[in-house]
Computed example of a mutant assay.
Amino acid sequence: MSAPPTSPWSPVRRATNGQVHLAFDRFTESPDGEPLLLATGLGANRRWIPDGLCRMLAAEGFAVARYDQRDGGESTHLPPTATTRNPLSALFAKRGEAYTAEDMADDTVAVLDALGWKSAHLLGVSLGGAVVQRVALRHPERVRTLTTMAAVPGDGAGLRSLRHVRLRTLARFGRLKFPDSPEGDIAAGVAVSRLLASPARPFDEHAARAAAERNKDRGMHDQQAQSRQIGAQWHGGPIEAIDRPTLVLHGADDPLIKPSAARAIASRVPDSRLVLLPQVGHELPESSWRRISDEVGALAGTHRGRAG
């Protein structure tokens, strides 16, 4: 019998922000280098970021870490709010009932503290992209460079964000119903992967099922937790005030967040760079890993040439 594969990740650790505990780990194959923290998307745990992409980022000279947002993965899940919503209706809410977007930005800083990193490069995907924009506004001294991918502008809310969201896809996302069981988690993972994949590529159901079986993530169909995350309101400044070197990545075929969101971010954040990824949806397919790692590595090079 062959030995089981060794995980390239350290044992899970937890950072603390008030009553919230945040699960994180580090990529062990390249522990030295420029610190890079990865922030995940709506409902998704940190394991949805492919190991292959992390390996390429490590080869670019990064020490890679990743964490679960509050209400996701192995981090603290908050109790249900007074009004149960689905993610679509949460976008229309005037205020979040559970926590603020500032709280989520402070979660990122708590993870940096637990890692012993005074500052780091940040890469956020989807909801994580909005979160890292807010970290750059709220805690600029902790951010070396900022990469936001598949995200809406971090200072948007309600109708300002809705203009960039494909509501038909979000409504389909909200209608997904699966049993609260390992089998339901797998089915949800496959269904969400299909929903968010680029329509320009054949959907690889076998690969999607294998990924979901490796990572049975209840967050894929926990609509109450997703609603709390998406309902967290930002009360800080506009993204025009971001002064960190910024890269804006977006799938050209994103079926959930329109590329107009990326264009809006790039037009408003000073000296930012926009890269649209062909045949990429709201996802991280293997075909995109090289371009992403190259771009993030090049962005880090701009930080080495400047103070701060």
Results as ranks from 00 to 15, higher is better:
S119V: 08
A120D: 12
A120K: 09
L122Y: 10
L123K: 00
G124C: 01
G124M: 05
V125Q: 11
V125M: 14
G128Y: 04
G128S: 07
A130I: 09
V132L: 12
R134D: 04
R134F: 02
R134S: 00
V135T: 07
V135L: 11
V135E: 05
A136P: 08
A136L: 11
L137A: 05
L137H: 08
H139K: 07
E141D: 15
R142P: 00
T145I: 07
T145Y: 01
T145Q: 05
L146M: 04
T148Y: 05
T148K: 05
M149F: 14
M149E: 07
M149W: 13
A150E: 04
A151L: 06
A151K: 08
V152W: 03
P153F: 01
P153H: 07
D155L: 09
G156H: 13
A157N: 03
A157V: 08
L159C: 05
L159A: 14
R160I: 09
S161L: 15
S161M: 14
R163Y: 10
R163P: 07
H164T: 12
H164Y: 15
L167E: 13
L167S: 11
T169H: 11
T169W: 12
T169A: 14
L170M: 15
L170D: 09
A171R: 14
R172K: 14
F173A: 10
F173E: 04
F173G: 02
F173I: 10
R175Y: 13
R175T: 13
R175F: 14
R175P: 09
K177N: 09
K177G: 09
K177V: 12
K177A: 13
D180A: 12
S181Y: 09
P182T: 06
E183T: 01
E183M: 03
E183A: 12
G184H: 00
I186R: 00
I186G: 03
A187G: 03
A188E: 06
V192E: 04
S193Y: 03
S193D: 04
R194I: 01
R194N: 01
R194A: 05
R194H: 05
L195T: 01
A197D: 00
S198F: 00
S198G: 01
